[in-house]
Amino acid sequence: MFFASDNSGIVHPKIMQRMVDANTGYAMPYGNDEIMDEVRTQIRELFEAPEAAVYLVATGTAANSLALACYTQPWQTIFCAQYSHIEEDECNAPEFYAGGAKLTLIPSDNKMTPDALAAAIDHRAGGSVHMAQSGAVSITQVTEFGSVHSLEELRALTAVAKEANLPVHLDGARFANALVALDCTPAEMTWKAGVDVVSFGGTKNGCAGVEAVIFFDPSKAQEFEYRRKRGAHLFSKHRYLSAQMGGYLTDGLWTDMARKANANCARLTAGLRANGAKFLHEPQANMIFASFPRAVHQKLHAGGARYYVLDGDVATGPAEEHLACRLVCDWAMTNDLIDQFLSHF
């Protein structure tokens, strides 16, 4: 009963097989392999962006940080939600790769709002030499609390950025989960909504470790190549990244896995709701933030469940006290495991 993270699950056998298939003979290094040519074509077709510059890295932190660095000078700031991944989970990597640029956190209990973003940008208007200058805007999709920005919400945020002539980055570590939740196209959720660059995640959705960085403005391509190499994220045996992404995108596997993960989350959500759990935010993709009594947490832990409790001590305290937790479903989770988890309530 492992609900700690979608980073914890297995690699899809088809993706693993693609890596095995790639492990034959010789191939050009550093992203010059033939598989990467195929991946580039696949992504450009999926995103309806024939001129897009496409690159692969092994981690989401590298994807976000290197992409943002291409749009942010050291004296600038990146606008992001208070609880965005680049703020809470990347150990200042975006600031490091951008040469010391800071993050400006937009107050929010979940999603960044256009009004709050506009207020933060307006605060830095005027170009005073004494403060950080306005840089990129970064949007997390799916949010850190499991919510999905609608297309209308995305467009409203990017409109504020464009009004201020600021570029927009989309942190899509769970891009596929958001896409199937919205039932839209990759283009509709990115460049058609005003996004300039996207970190397109694979690791959390059945890959071993690969993320794509997609620039809809190809003029950023050369700078990214320099930054990726200087930042030690250019793989020499790149074909194993290419093979993963190639397998991920073939025959719609990436969306199939996301649909399964979201469906698993919906099943778990329904069971929790039926058992009186309280939800911090309405689950919309594959993550749940909920609370239920300490006594239930104790039974789950004793039964071998693994997940993150966000506040309080599970071992000691009133049995009826609610403790909040995060539960994440991936594509490989079975209905039996979900039902086994729910049987402890």
Rank of each mutant, 00 (worst) to 15 (best):
R230F: 08
L56W: 03
T143D: 09
I15C: 00
H322C: 11
A22Q: 04
F235A: 15
E211A: 06
G304D: 00
C91E: 14
N286M: 08
G194H: 04
G312K: 06
H301I: 08
L253K: 01
R306C: 03
Y226N: 12
A290G: 05
G231S: 13
L268P: 09
A277P: 07
E88P: 00
K229C: 07
S138Q: 12
I35P: 08
E90G: 01
K192S: 14
A295V: 13
Q82M: 12
I86Y: 04
E321H: 14
L103K: 10
D196K: 02
A263C: 04
C207M: 10
G9L: 09
T140G: 15
L327F: 03
G317I: 10
T269K: 09
T255R: 08
M245R: 06
A295C: 09
V198D: 03
A81P: 00
Y226Q: 13
G231Y: 05
P74T: 10
A101I: 08
L241P: 04
P94T: 07
N262S: 06
G25V: 04
F216C: 02
F215A: 06
D33T: 09
N23A: 15
A274L: 13
S134Q: 13
E163W: 09
V11W: 03
Y240S: 01
T334F: 02
H301C: 01
F289G: 01
D171H: 12
V142E: 04
P29T: 03
R326K: 13
A263R: 12
A52M: 05
L117S: 02
G100D: 07
L170F: 04
M36G: 04
T250H: 14
Q82F: 13
A98D: 00
G317D: 07
A302D: 14
A208Q: 11
L66T: 03
Q133V: 10
N23H: 11
D313Y: 11
K229I: 11
R228K: 15
L234S: 13
A81W: 01
R326C: 13
K111F: 02
A302S: 08
V39K: 00
M131Y: 12
D109H: 11
E38F: 02
F279V: 10
R40N: 12
E51Y: 10
F279G: 08
M333R: 15
S236C: 14
P107I: 02
A22S: 12
G127L: 06
E88S: 07
G100K: 09
E88I: 08
A136W: 01
Y30F: 15
G60A: 06
E320I: 04
Y30P: 03
M19S: 04
L272G: 03
D115T: 14
F79E: 09
H322Y: 15
A173C: 15
G126Q: 03
D6W: 00
G60Y: 03
S199E: 14
P29L: 05
A221G: 09
E163R: 15
I106S: 05
I86E: 09
A52I: 05
R174L: 15
N64P: 00
H281Q: 08
